[in-house]
Nucleic acid binder design. Sequence first.
RNA 1: GGAGAGGUGGCCGAGUGGUUGAAGGCGGCGGUCUCGAAAAUCGCUAUUCUGGAUUUCCCAGGAUCGUGGGUUCGAAUCCCACCCUCUCCGCCA
Length: 423
Amino acid sequence: MLDIKFVQENLDLVIRKTASKGMEINLTAFKNLIAEKKAQLQKVEALRFELNKTSKLIGRMKMDKEDALSEIAAMKKVSEETRILEEKLKTVDEELKSILLNIPNIPHESVPEGLSPENNEEVRMWGEKPKFSFSPKPHWEIGKNLGILDFERASKITGSRFVVYLGKGALLERALINFMLDIHTREKGYIEVIPPFIVNEISLTGTGNLPKFEDDLFKLQGLSWYLIPTAEVPLTNYYRDEILEKESLPQRFVAYTPCFRSEAGSYGKDVRGLVRQHQFNKVELMTFSSPENSYVELEKLTSDAEDILKRLGLHYRVVVLCSGDLGFSGAKTYDLELWMPHRDKFLEISSCTNCEDFQARRANIRFRSETKSKPQFVHTLNGSGLALGRTVSAILESYQQKDGSVVVPKALQPYMNGLEKIE
RNA sequence: GGAGAGGUGGCCGAGUGGUUGAAGGCGGCGGUCUCGAAAAUCGCUAUUCUGGAUUUCCCAGGAUCGUGGGUUCGAAUCCCACCCUCUCCGCCA
């Protein structure tokens, strides 16, 4: 959520920046509501003043055993009048809030303008495309042939866009999770968290998933609870409505969780194999930072995620997302994109985002820079470190051999009982 | 799921209809004392909104005691609903 005052004072800027994200908003209603709110508020406050003052007088008169009937009668009227105005004011406030909740975050000044992914800018590239003496197979074929991925039985158990990991496949997934968690906790200074996989509406509003993107979520029937689409939601809300000490910042968390996404409306796009599942595993990085350090933290978080790819020896590149490709809550995002040999293309594996104070304002997460100073909003950052399914698919495709086997990356072998090859 | 208790400021905790934004304590900040520190002692110590001004904390005012309603001239205090926490019982990995 943007600061209401900021929006008020920068209407044109907000409209322009929102447009640069590919969203159109009309702030005429907002402008009118603000004016109406001010007028109503002043009336209500004047009435309340009178009410408070006279009520105290009545109290004193009663203690002195004086007769206060005329005052009470007068205040009865004022009280009724106040109530009517308060109701109007409440409606106005609710409308304002709902407009604000639907305005996306404003891109950072370093973000390139543009509406389509072609306007994303490559920041750096690491490694090289693996070379094959044969034409590389897609990961779903490799996985099926090795008997480690079973899409057919998953769709019997649940439906499409689910998968069963089997044997060495399950081991590979588990090894990757442990590998990532170990590096982030032992070497990069993150605290490991296992959060709830179910969250409430308030938490999802805090991160910006609600109210706008309810369709992307799985909601539990009859409850206001949802399956998490990412660990970002429980992690960010860990400190909701709290005031942190400045010395405690930055705070860095890492969590492995499954993620659940309805993927409504994504039919036909990247649907094969492990790329777009309703349920997938992810190791998520999350940082609470002071405002002045958040862009340093963004670089750290991004390079921590990259380090996993380097150790796995996977060819990737880093792009900075253009304004139009940025998510709703993000001010700046680096995408890590993995090389997928069969597709002959890069595929997003991690989005490292600085949300600045957008989520913190929604979730009311603040810190005090000095003991006496006023609390201000923290900056929140998150990024995958990394998404598991896509990592597995890149490993299968990049390390595949002519005979259909897959070599296990060196760094991963200790996590797989020394296994060097899946065959 | 059943029965009970409770939710108050950064934290603990008093407060059951009338100057209570809220006693007391802890923590923090500042002063006195001290060569210095501790102890003692005194003072300050919530957030947010509106209007004004000599425009960043100066003045006036509003809101906030889990959340939302209600009663009342007046609610932290009474009533209703919901949420959450704790204890006991039941069930269960």
